[in-house]
Design a protein around this nucleic acid. Structure first.
Lengths: 228, 228
DNA sequence: CCAAAAGTGTTTCACTTACACCCATGA
DNA sequence: TCATGGGTGTAAGTGAAACACTTTTGG
């Protein structure tokens, strides 16, 4: 590699896989309004600028295209197949994030494009290689959710233990035992029991809990190991 | 993003963190023979060509610069700090690999550069942000080794249980109980017990074992979960 | 015969799993 | 009063951790 490198370069882009939780696990998509893949749904994303890092580019593109802001984006994988974009060589760094769907239910796209939530179990065929990107993100989510408390990002600040359990069941695609689940998460010691219950339900109201981030980090420092 | 995207682009490079095992955990470095950081040690790597994927670029650069070939490179992380290269904007995709040090003890660099193994616990200051890249790779290795049998890549095809245990101790930086360790790895059922013992040792010769990849994948399919 | 590492079992304790009924509430 | 989910305990089994001595071999 010489001092002045001036061969042709691939273009560099970012794509964002943003998950939310409803009955199902949901993902945020935008509808493309220009070729290629005009009209097809795609992951929000775009090209990286010279004066921003990849993290910054991902955050900016996500906000520009979907209005979603203040989310923690984590780098997922960099995709570099030669033909992943029919126009030219584009290498894309994928990010993923978990958001409280309630905070982003109506998304005001700042440009003309349409953004919408889709259940991951009933998706349209996506543009580019975004099916593959999404599959990678889903696998990562499934793999991480059991040993990092990332799932809490999907829930509102106050939640019931049943909501928490349903979240794990949806992501892991398997049922969990209610008593064992409650025992486990409560003994971990970072759920703050509130003196409040859920409202407007047609049955006994469940107690609300809050994820105590400080306490969690305190436990981490002491070598605590979260699992399941 | 317009059809013809022609803004300035970052250069795109790959860097390879290749681990080997001796008494300590080792990493393969090359000495730079041009500025910037002339004379400093760095991770092998270089710019990505238009006709190759990132995986291919990493493999090619590693071979060109160190002679190391036929290793399984896994993508690690993409680094994009604005000033990580003093010449110009360079985004670099890092890869990591584990190799049997015995196979690569003498490395014949194909060009003039020097390549050498360094213990990770006694490293020179590296060029660019390679200290950070290496730290990321070490963290990943430590995190993965307990629940994927990747560590076997560091050992020769036939190894003793003590060698296997030492490998885990070196990577995890903690001591393990001999009896419990042997019990555990043997009950997992993918170690093939050979009718051979190690040679030329000044004490009782230990039995040799082989990692049975087929059996491991068979167990995986049946939902087996490797850990520690 | 000495040094050096190989090899081997048992007990204790903690955690995981399986499992079923009563309770509180709003409609 | 009924339907709906909320909330609770125990027993059995499995796996992790702690722990020390004998065996083999070459020098």
């Amino acid at each position: 590699m010489s001092f002045h490198y001036q061969y042709a370069r691939p273009a560099l882009a970012v794509d964002c896989v943003v998950f939310g939780l409803d009955e199902d696990l949901q993902v945020l998509l935008i509808q493309r309004d220009i070729p290629p893949f005009e009209g097809r749904w795609a992951l929000p994303g775009g090209f990286v600028r010279m004066d921003e890092t990849l993290d910054e580019a991902a955050k900016r593109e996500l906000e520009e295209e979907t209005g979603v802001t203040r989310v923690y984006l984590e780098q997922l994988y960099t995709f570099s197949e030669l033909d992943r974009d029919p126009r030219e060589r584009v290498v894309s760094v994928a990010y993923y994030a978990l958001v409280k769907l309630s905070d982003h239910r109506v998304k005001a796209a700042t440009d003309a494009r349409e953004a919408a939530w889709f259940s991951v179990i009933d998706l349209p065929k996506l543009a580019f290689d975004h099916d593959r990107v999404l599959a990678t993100a889903l696998a990562r989510l499934k793999g991480n959710v059991t040993y990092k408390p990332i799932g809490f990002e999907l829930l509102p600040p106050k939640f019931t233990l049943s909501q928490l359990q349903r979240m794990y069941e949806v992501i892991l695609e398997k049922e969990l035992d209610k008593r064992n689940f409650r025992k486990k998460v409560l003994t971990m010691g970072f759920l703050e029991e509130l003196d409040e219950v859920e409202q407007d339900v047609a049955h006994r109201a469940a107690r609300l809990y809050r994820f105590d981030k400080k306490q969690y980090h305190e436990l981490m420092k002491q070598g605590f190991h979260f699992e399941l």
